[in-house]
Design a protein around this nucleic acid. Structure first.
Lengths: 239, 239
DNA sequence: GGCCGGTCTTGATTCAAGTCAATGAATGAC
DNA sequence: GTCATTCATTGACTTGAATCAAGACCGGCC
């Protein structure tokens, strides 16, 4: 490999790292150091990155594409834990745990990920305590996000979960201006992310449509009145 | 405060820290350093440690008693996130986030907790990178636990969740030997932790009792055959 | 055009579990 | 001891949502 090519590759890696929650705000030198302990992996649609129980060699950052992290019961029903997209990191648990990955991970489309190697990052953190501080901070907020998802799922009512999901995508909740939301996945997958099935999802969209809260055209959902949707949500969460 | 008393107090704090997931395995010197940046707080039953949105001054380790971390909708219904007991740490999110706590925390009984102060621990971590590494590891596994809870709750069926809960408390799953499990909380609270209500919980216990899987006497649940309970669980999770 | 492979929608049915309500059992105060 | 309060259990009822089943829509492809 020529020096030029190595440098080019490194630049791409650094850019990906910079976009990742875990590393945002790190000085370029840190990013270079981290890039030095990563390996790029390319996946075709439906390729598995790892399976539950596989020995963990590090954690991952999505450079391009999408990865579905899920658990699967033996009858084949998937419980989607999360869909990770460009810039997301996942499986950080591998940094600490000597045991295998706790779930399966599969590419939903042609995807490339960075594998940040466990041994490399451990050595690096030893040299650079400041970096450890920042990562610790990022992990804490990631943890908080998980707690949030946990809440979302414990709100039992699908209507409320969908309202919540839509509201999160409206830039201004106090506005009357319609907001267009493009669905980047099939409705079946989105339904799974919301912890339900496509039929119920469809019915719930219909219910909102009847109430003139949204309109749906193909893969575009338009929130007709963010403010009214928001007040519905507040009402459902118990006034 | 006399030097003797200070030393005595410190000893108790160090012992508590040692029992906490976040710090197990740390050398005594590290523990002493951390103890130096903690404050002990005593709570009566039903005292609040913090409320959602309160400015976070650090994170907590339970020294004695129990803390209920929960969110509450305005109608007053509590969603229990977790019950933290002696040795558990919580609200680590406060280390990184400049925003407030994401939930409420209330003592379920007379309780004392250590507040590990944000500013102090930050300074300490700067001096001791090794410590940061270990904490990072601990946080990762905590994160994994949360993912596990998330799974638990997405298993929709109460019977399965209870079976899972019981199985986790059996030391040997391959054994026929009965296992006694003491309930340290009221059944109502346990039901909430399992994401259900006391009535349904009661019925589910009754169902298991009819199948001779368990027997219940007051606050003691005896798993009559761990192996059969485990096979029920596997069956429910999809063969 | 017409014929498929998907995804999406709608309807009818079923079931788990939450709610309401009544009654016991246990605990603690006085 | 009585009385009160909280907890636990059981029954009857209701409901949200999963499931099953049947069309509708919407590509691509020959």
């Amino acid at each position: 490999m020529s020096a030029d090519f190595a440098e080019f590759k490194n630049l791409g890696v650094v850019n990906t790292l910079r976009n990742c929650r875990l590393f945002t705000g790190l000085p370029p030198a840190d990013l270079q150091n981290i890039a030095a302990v990563t390996v790029v992996k390319s996946l075709e649609k439906d390729d598995y990155l790892f399976h539950e129980g596989d020995l963990a060699h590090g954690f991952y950052v999505v450079q391009r594409g999408a990865v579905n992290v899920h658990r699967v019961s033996a009858v084949g029903k998937e419980q989607v834990i999360h869909i990770f997209r460009t810039g997301d990191s996942f499986a950080e648990v591998a940094l600490a745990s000597p045991t295998g990955y706790p779930a399966d991970a599969r590419a939903l489309e042609p995807t490339s990920v960075l594998l940040v190697q466990k041994q490399g990052i451990l050595a690096l953190l030893k040299r650079q305590p400041e970096l450890a501080l920042r990562m610790l901070g990022s992990m804490s907020s990631h943890l908080r996000v998980l707690v949030g998802q946990l809440e979302d799922l414990t709100v039992k009512d699908v209507e409320t979960r969908l309202a919540n999901w839509l509201v999160k995508r409206c830039p201004d909740l106090k506005s009357e201006a319609p907001v267009k939301i493009e669905l980047t996945m099939t409705k079946r997958v989105l339904a799974a992310e919301l912890g339900t099935v496509s039929e119920t999802f469809s019915r719930t969209l219909a219910k909102f449509r009847e109430q003139k809260l949204i309109s749906v055209k193909g893969k575009t959902v338009t929130v007709l009145s963010p403010i009214r949707l928001h007040s519905l949500l507040r009402h459902n969460l118990g006034e």
